[in-house]
């Protein structure tokens, strides 16, 4: 498929994630929208890796161009898993203190 289709699909998913962060007040939904943005970037990285691999494949049949991008995606998933565990612990702590998941309660931090 043309790379433009993948770019536009990833952009659509990324912008849906941005709108979700801006629009929703439930902090769990905001967190899920951040995960959505991470996945959009992952999809774009994989598409670009296959694009570069396709160019390099024409000259060398045994090339491994593009494996770096797929390992980057793997490491993004690793970091996202760690981020989710800490973030959900923070959300649980916040819920225990305020009995709410409204992000507007977080502006108490400034006092």
């Amino acid at each position: 498929m043309p790379i433009q289709y993948y770019i536009i699909l990833s952009l659509a998913l990324f912008c849906i994630g941005i709108v979700g962060v801006l629009v929703r007040r439930n902090v769990i939904i905001v967190f899920m929208c951040i995960e959505l943005m991470l996945n959009a970037v992952n999809l774009l990285l994989v598409a670009f890796s296959k694009m570069h691999h396709g160019v390099a494949y024409l000259s060398d049949k045994l090339t491994t161009t593009g494996t770096d991008a797929q390992l980057f995606v793997f490491f993004i998933m690793v970091v996202a898993a760690a981020e989710v565990s800490v973030g959900l612990a923070i959300i649980v702590m916040m819920y225990r203190n305020t009995h709410s998941v409204d992000v507007n309660f977080l502006n108490r931090l400034k006092n």
Partner: peptide, 30 residues
């Protein structure tokens, strides 16, 4: 968010470097 999407999509459509690039589906086993 819609304005951001519109600007980025118009940028992608204008970019000539990626105009004829293809994400290969069948070749390679990376």
């Amino acid at each position: 968010g819609g304005c951001l999407l519109m600007i980025l999509v118009s940028l992608v459509r204008q970019a000539t470097e990626i105009g004829n690039k293809v994400a290969e589906m069948k070749v390679g086993n990376i």
